[in-house]
Simulated assay, not measured.
Amino acid sequence: MEPYDESSLDEGLVPAHVDPFVEALQERILGAPLDLDRRAVAREVGVSFRTAERFWHALGFPPVTDGAHAFSRTDLKALEIIAELVRSGRLDESTALGLTRAFARTTDRLSVWQTSLLAEALSPWQQGDVELSRAHLAEGHDSTRAEPDESTARAAVSALAELADELEPLLVYAWRRHLTSAVARMVSDADPVAMGPGGLRRCVGFADLVAFTSLVRRLSERELARVVQQFEAVCSDVITAHGGRVIKTVGDEVLFVAKVPADGARIALDLVAAIHADDMLPPVRLGLAYGPVVSRLGDVFGTTVNKAARLTAVAPRGRILVDDVLAQELVDAPGLVTVKQRSRTLRGVGVVTPSLLSPGLGDSLLA
């Protein structure tokens, strides 16, 4: 980590004008005023400006102009922590910045998610406040838009500033809880007996809402946002109930994994049933595959993932297709039945003979 050097400073970008209301809220959330410029932060921590800038970029923020008071004592403290980890030799700079980037990407989405949720909760249309809704319409706000109007946005961010101190311990708690699960999973996956031949093996599933494109054309932005939010909530509840993990959601799709093949199959069946029972959501189709995966930075890659995605694309409406490997794994699983389908060629995968997955006798797929 390079020491502080005045000559390393460059011009940076001119910061945009900040609304005084927003500036006051930022100070309240940070717990300290924005009274430091980048030169002061780098100097006090004793690192080069370029090191400080790399940390700032890893957090996902653009550069600011020299002399602009865009930093607080909390920013300085965070940089001190990273600098000390590197100086002590506990982390190299690349790893320290990688960990910072992981925090940044996760908390960026978390922050946007939470502000959106609160804005929706405070929306006059969501609350059913007819008079306030009429007033907002009279002001020219479009009630079909997903973004909140100015008064709702200001109310939401004010409420979040009030709640920040209470929510912070929950964030730390959730991180530590997930960290305990992650370390246990890593140790278990490193066991050569548990890992099995071919490396790390997982049941990988893709769930995809049917005819989502036509839904986009038919619904307003606000209605579409509610559909996506409901889809994510249902998927998260069902997947975690069976011990699976949501890897990522992208609008009308969710990617999940399960360690035990039968658990992955039951997730898929319960997703079809739960989404069928939800009047807000269109039908779903799923593809499942079992085999080796490459796990990297919270995501999964490899042929097994590609196969699950391709099977989803050809799965019938409200149905689940599984690859031949998973079908074989499910032969003796109670309450699970697979029926072989015709072979087909999947782009980027090759010839696959999928099977249709359904519950055992006495159960209904759409119960």
Rank of each mutant, 00 (worst) to 15 (best):
P3D: 03
E6T: 07
E6A: 15
S7V: 10
G12V: 03
F21T: 07
Q26Y: 07
R28T: 12
G46M: 02
R50H: 11
H57Y: 07
H69A: 15
K77E: 14
L85I: 06
R90W: 08
G98V: 02
V112T: 11
V112Y: 11
T115W: 10
T115R: 15
P124L: 00
W125M: 01
Q126N: 13
Q127M: 10
A135H: 12
A135I: 05
R145C: 11
E147Q: 11
T152P: 04
R154M: 04
A155M: 05
L160N: 08
D165G: 10
L167K: 12
Y173H: 13
W175F: 13
R176P: 02
S181M: 13
A184F: 07
A190W: 08
V193N: 11
G196M: 04
D208I: 00
V216L: 01
L219V: 04
V228P: 02
Q230F: 00
V246M: 08
T249K: 01
F256C: 12
V257Y: 06
L269R: 04
A273H: 04
A274R: 00
H276Y: 08
R285Y: 02
G287N: 08
P292E: 05
V300M: 10
V314L: 07
V314T: 14
R317A: 11
I320K: 03
D332A: 13
K340P: 07
L346Y: 09
T353W: 09
S355M: 06
S355H: 08
S355A: 14
S355N: 05
L365S: 02
L366Y: 09
